[in-house]
């Protein structure tokens, strides 16, 4: 079965598909509205980024359905925020936006950041940020302007990152996606 890539309108949705393929797995892009009906045909799900904001726009509660179905999931950017927002955390507009390069400082590696150095450069593109995690999650990394750059609930196999591991400019991005795919 395929890795379902839930398209929430990111510029990088297709880049996630490419990265998954480069790691030897088959990815399948589905629009966010169709994700729930395809759950049973998937091994795991990746929630893409996107231009909307969970603070103002209506959202399908995809993360809760994926969690209920017991599938591993990885949220990226808006996907990270949607996981926090719908599973009981909190997302607000940040004090400062982050576009382009950002230095990510790893506080603990956990599962998803396993093998990464203490600090690395990642590519980001967001204004909203997660300020409170849902229950059962641990924070893994921060940057100068954003308190939670990565978080996970390893037991439930739910992982999320604020930065974009799929783009070429993010150092160790392949390692991060590989860490997720190994959980599948």
């Amino acid at each position: 079965m395929a890795i379902l890539i839930v398209d929430m309108g990111s510029q990088y949705t297709h880049v996630i598909w490419r990265a998954v393929r480069d790691l030897g797995r088959e990815g399948k892009i589905v629009p966010k509205e169709a994700a729930a009906s395809k759950l049973s045909d998937s091994d795991a799900l990746i929630l893409s980024g996107g231009p909307s904001s969970v603070t103002t726009d209506q959202f399908y509660n995809i993360p809760a359905q994926i969690k209920k179905a017991g599938r591993p999931m990885l949220g990226v950017c808006l996907g990270h925020q949607l996981i926090a927002h719908t599973l009981g955390g909190k997302v607000v507009k940040g004090k400062s936006a982050e576009y382009g390069i950002s230095k990510i400082e790893v506080d603990r590696q956990g599962v998803i950041l396993d093998g990464l150095p203490k600090a690395f450069n990642a590519w980001v593109s967001h204004f909203d940020e997660v300020v409170k995690m849902p229950g059962g999650f641990v924070a893994l990394a921060h940057s100068e302007t954003c308190g939670i750059e990565a978080m996970e609930n390893a037991k439930k196999k739910i992982f999320s990152v604020q930065f974009h591991p799929e783009v070429w400019h993010t150092e160790h991005g392949e390692r991060i996606l590989g860490n997720f795919l190994r959980q599948v």
Binding site: D7, S10, G50, P51
Partner: peptide, 16 residues
Amino acid sequence: IAPDWIESGGGSRKKI
């Protein structure tokens, strides 16, 4: 190629 249609927008993806 991919960036051409990606950046041109479509569905929930904004036009750049």
